[in-house]
Each structure stands twice: as C-alpha cells, then as structure tokens.
Design a protein around this nucleic acid. Structure first.
Lengths: 212, 212, 212, 212
DNA sequence: AATGAATGAGTATTCATTCAT
DNA sequence: TATGAATGAATACTCATTCAT
C-alpha cells in the first residue's frame, strides 16, 4: 500500500485513511487553484476540516501531502484503465475503447493532471521514483493492450513509443487546453487522435473514415 | 521586443541586454537544478556574477527573471524552426527535416523545456498569456509546414492536431527521459516518431520502411 | 473595541490582549528611543519578549503596532479625563481641576505624546481617521466641561477653540520641553497656563491673582 | 550661514546655493506628500532636476536634505516676523499685527510646518540642536514684542509662555487642520485667538469686543 | 487524538551611498 | 561638475514544523 510510505503517529488505520482522504480532497482543491508551492499547510489543514496540529499527526512533511495527492491521482487512472481493458479478448476495437476511455478520464481530471505535471519534480528523489514507477506501470498497461490487440505485429519498442504517445496525448488535452479546446470538442479530439493512431498501426482492415 | 516588457532602471540598452543575458544563463543553470521556487534571487545574482542590488537594477521582481528565461527559450526554438523551414520549396522531405531539426533541438534543450513545463504557471496572467502566444506561434509554424508540404490534402484542424502532437513529442523526449531514454537512442526515437507520423499522413508515396 | 480592528490569528481573546499589551509596552519603549521608522519588527518582538513569528500571530503589519500604541495612549488620556470630570456639578473649579489633571498626565506621558505627534501620519488613511476621531472625542470632552462650567456664557465655537488650546498646551509641555522645562517647573507651568486661561474666560468672580 | 554646516564637494558657492535651492524645493514637494522617511534620495534628485550622483555632490547624507529644508522654513518664518515687527514703535497694535502676520504665514506654510513637526526628530543631535535654537530665537522675537508692547507690565516668564502659546497656536492651525478648518475660517480663527490673548494680557484699554 | 500557540530560519525587495567615467 | 551603474546591509513578513496541553 502506497500510503504506508508515509508515517503517521495515529495508530487507528481506518482513521488514518479517512483523514488522509479528507486531506487529499482538500489539497487537490487548493493545488488546482494555486499550485503546491503557493499553498500553505495551514490552508490544507483548514480546507481538510481540521487543525494544523492534526494535519501533522497524519503526515510528516508538506511534501507527504503532495505524494498522497499524486498517488491518489494515479490510482484513479489505473482503475479506469483496468476496467476498460478486456484481457480475455484483446482486439483493435478494445484498444480503441481503452484509449477512448482514457481520454475521457483525462478530460475529467485535467486539473489533477496539471498538478502532477508541474509538481512531481518537487518530490524528493525516492518518492519521485515511486511515482514515476506508477506512470511506467500504466504506460505498460497500454503497451500490453497494443501488443496483444495487434497480435504481436509490432515491436515492443514501437508499442512502447505509441503507448507513450497515447499517454501524453491524453494529458495534452488538459495541459494544452488553452490551445486545443478552442478548436476541438472532446469527442472531435478523441476521434481524430484515434484516427491518426489507427492509420499508424499495422492493421489490415480497411479505413473508411479517411476523410475524417 | 519581448525584453521591453520588463522595466529596468538602467538606461544603457546594450548593458541591459548584456546583464540580462548573464542573468538568463545563471538562472537557467539554477532553475534546472532546483526549480524556480527553490531558487533565491540572491543565488541568481551570484550565479550571474553580480550583487543582489545590481540584479534588481535590471528587473523588478523575481518573476521577471522567469519571464526572461521563458522568452529566451522560445526565441531559440523559433530560430531553429525558422532556419529549418524551406518556405520556397515545401515538400514532405522538408517537413521531415524540420521535424528532425526540432527534435534535435529539444534534445539539446531538455532542461530548459522542463523548466518551462513546470514554471510557466508561476507567471502572472498577463505575462503567461504572452508566453502562451509564443507557443501558439510556433505550433502555427509547424502547422503551416504540414499544410504546404501536403499540398492542402489535410484539413486545418487535422494539421493543427498533428502539429501539436509533433510539438509535444519533441518535448516528451526531455520531460519523459526517465522513461524513454533507456529504450531509445535519440536517432532511434526520431526515426520511429517520424515513421509513425508519415504513416498517418495522406501521402501517396510508397512506405518501404514498414517494418521499422 | 479598538483592538478588534487588528486581526490576529490567535483565537484566545485573553491571550491576544495579554500579548498585545506586552507589545504596546515594548513598542513604546522603542519608539521613544528611535521613532517608529527606525524601530524594526524584530526589535519590537524581542523587547516584547517573544519571537518575530509570535509577533505576527497577533498583528498583520508593522503599522498595526503603531495603531495599537496610539490607541492605548488615547485610552489612557480618556480615562484620566473621565475620572477628573464631575458631570453632576460642573463648575469653574472642576474645570480647573480637569485641566490640571490633564496637564499632569501630559507630563507623565511626554514621550508617548511625542510618538503620536510624529507618527500618526504614518498610519493608513482609514486607521488615521479612527485615531483622529479619538482626539476629536477628547477635545469634545474638554469642550463640554468648558461649556457647562461657564453656564453657556460662551459660544460653542469659542469653547472648541479654547479646548483645542488647552489640549495642545498640555502636549506642548512635552514636545517643547527643550524650551519650556528650563524655565518652568510643572506646577509653575500649570499655574500660569490656567491663570491666563481664566483671564480669558467670561467669569464674573474677582481675579485676585492678577500678578501671577 | 546655515548652509555652511553642510559640506559640498563643489567649490563654486553660487552653484552650491542654486543647486541646494532646487533641492529644497524638490524635497519639500516630496516630503509634503510622503514624509521624509518614505521619500528616497533618488526621488529627491529627480524632483530637483539632476541625477543621484549630482545630489551627493552637494550634500553628504539624506539627513542633510532634511536640515536644509528645516533651515529654509525657519528662514522664511524669521523674515516674515522681522518685517512685521516695528521695533521703533512697539505697541499692542503692532503686537496684534505681528501675530496676525505670523498666523497668515502659518496658513501658507501648513505643509512645511507639518514636515518640521514630524521630522525634526530624525535629525542628528547637533543638527537638531541648531534647528531648535532657531525656534528659540523666533519665540524670543515674539517674546520681545510682547514685553516691549506691554511696557514691561509682564514678567519675562509669562511673556515666554505667551510667546510659546502664540507660536504653537499658529502651527496648530496647520497640524490640526482636520479639526479646526471645518469650524473656522482663517480670519475667524485669527480673530478669536487674538481676542482671547488680549483678554489675558494686562492691558488697561477697554475691550469692547467682549462677545466675539 | 486533537488543538493551536510558538518558533525562527528563510526570502524578496529597497535604498542610501560610492566611485569610475 | 555631472552621471548613473554597482553595491550590500537592512528589513518586513511568511510558513513549515513542533510540542505542551
């Protein structure tokens, strides 16, 4: 469990989880607004509904809060990916569904993704490594879907590259919204990205939607 | 001129430019290491080779330094793109060259790009808008190359999407280096990204490098 | 309550009052010596017996300290005036007693009065207006004593003028001490000022002390 | 000459005087607006029409500027008093004229007087002593007019007290303007102050204006 | 477990003054 | 004489963290 990396002086594990969830919720709201550095621990405590003293019963440093937030965001992404992936029946159709599902999630989580992009570097080395590993895991999930869907007609390396492309194209919808969301609706954006991806893939089926 | 947005109490324009270049250089070195927030103005002054008082003769706030840094980075990117683009003879080959050239630059400027990704949000609204406009301009340059190279066989919207994809794929090489640079050499990365891009484009020429 | 104008992050009101009294005492000692501008917040904190961080738990800006000091001074003056005024039995004798009492206080508070004279202008408009109103109130008290003592044989305007004269003659004892206190003892000063004032007033009783 | 107390590296005495007059004019304008402490030497230089370097050719410290300003103010007051006093024919009428003349000047110089009241304490000990001596001199002038006008029917001490009273009543018109200038016109104020003063003096002539 | 008062290291910014040109 | 770039000590205010209750 990720949260075990953060020490708490409170013993009651259920309480710890409850309080930390309050904290994550409060912190995300604040980080969205002002970023990690400009948010104070007092504000986090207040937004979470308890005192600054209580906050420090459940974490040890401000950075711990950031870690909890990042971790929570990744959990959410992983859950979504997991529920979209059909391991039993891999197919290009399922791949498309997974991508679509991921893009929809990225739309919902635009702000959170922005936080991660901008603040992960504030984590200390080993915590950061933990978080990056999570990202690797998730790219790995996508990669696996690609490989299995295409029945191994693609190298691992290419699959990894495409998985990374998909991954950041999803995030890009959020962090480049000032550029994209004036020209595209979400559906439109998803449609075109999948369109181009499919053209890039070694698939034999006809592509009737050439024109867009 | 971008630098005119920042007020200086020193009147000698050449001196201002010289000192600010020292500042930009010093600041980038520090921001790479510790990020904008964790770098102090005193450190910037010292690294730039002058006193804290002198620093403030050339800028007004710490944020001004960040703006100068961002602006300098964009200028460099713009210059590179401009010199790679052959406006007279647009062709798919030139498009490939532009992309390759851009990717090489992104490799050289990995750290700077990282700074921009993480710190632009620290700029005040006004200045941020200015910086984002620069990014729009550059995506616009790429977009134009795409459209002219393909002799208008692509919609503007699609061209914009692809330009954005290329743009962030270049940046991704830097900000996801922990993931990509273990599996890819730079040449390798460029080759495969261009490969997939070309497959996605509406080009009639044969694609003999299908296998990679 | 005047102190409510100053925000504190500490909630315990008794503690706030206690700490602020420490602060006022410390600040007056320092302001006497070096004036408001030359006194640093750190010095105030130290003189008050707590850390700079604690100081800022009880105020928000350095100017708040000045306001607290001014307010405390006025409160003291008001209390003295109030206890000297005999509202039930107004008389010229009571008027003399009030003036004498006020002059004695001004002697005790020479330094504080000096502070006020020199620093009130450093207050922000809003706060300054509040402080000036207090001064108006006090002059109003004196004015009322004059009017009632003289059984309305004086215009309101004249009463106001005389009240102002008395007011600053009291303060003058302190802020012109370098000129007055070589020639006058306090008793002497009070005696002569009251003497001249009485001659100016429309009183029918004989004035046997013409010569001084 | 007072200005000789301030060292200048410029030898040309006329130039020194010219520049210092520029300085005094500029400084007064600024001190009126923001007080001595909040005015920077750079602002003084600019307002005076020369560079910061030049400013320091004519003075040695910022405090020197304050001294020059104070001195200039006193000179003006002295000139006015001198021209109003009729040493040959002292009379109560001349005394009244002198007072009136002084009050009018105080009205003109409200801001300057305020500066002096609030900033003299910022002067270093010996400069301050010099300035205070000037004030003593001027009170002495008033005192002398009183004594001679009344043909010695008043003690020196009483005369000094009354001179001081007159002196600060003049200043009061300016520094308590927020209180007085709503209720009094200048003429009205002068009239009533002189009225009360005359009642206090040992004069045998009838006082027909008893009612005001 | 919860609270919140206390702490003090840390930081951006200002400004009087100097001095080479 | 005039200039203005350079300096760095000084200072108001913040905020993560602790710890007694």
């Amino acid at each position: 469990m990720a949260q075990d990396r953060i020490l708490s002086s409170v013993k009651d594990v259920e309480l710890v989880e409850k309080r930390r969830n309050q904290m994550i919720k409060g912190a995300i709201a604040l980080f969205k607004e002002k970023g990690f550095h400009r948010t104070t621990t007092r504000e986090i405590a207040k937004e979470s509904g308890f005192s600054i003293g209580t906050l420090y019963e459940y974490i040890r440093t401000k950075e711990d809060v950031l870690f909890l937030v990042c971790d929570a965001i990744y959990e959410k992404v992983r859950d979504r990916l997991e529920s979209a992936i059909d391991l039993e029946n891999p197919s290009v159709t399922n791949l498309e569904k997974v991508i679509e599902s991921y893009f929809y999630l990225m739309d919902e989580m635009q702000e959170e993704v922005l936080i991660m992009y901008q603040e992960v570097k504030s984590l200390k080395k080993d915590t950061k490594e933990y978080v990056l590993q999570k990202e690797r895991d998730m790219v790995g999930m996508l990669e696996k879907v690609i490989v299995t869907s295409l029945q191994d007609k693609i190298t691992e390396q290419d699959a990894e590259l495409l998985a990374n492309n998909i991954f950041i194209q999803g995030q890009m919808w959020g962090f480049r919204r000032w550029m994209l969301q004036k020209q595209f609706t979400l559906e439109n954006y998803i449609d075109r990205q999948i369109h181009f991806l499919m053209k890039a893939l070694p698939i034999n089926k006809p592509q009737p939607d050439e024109a867009g």
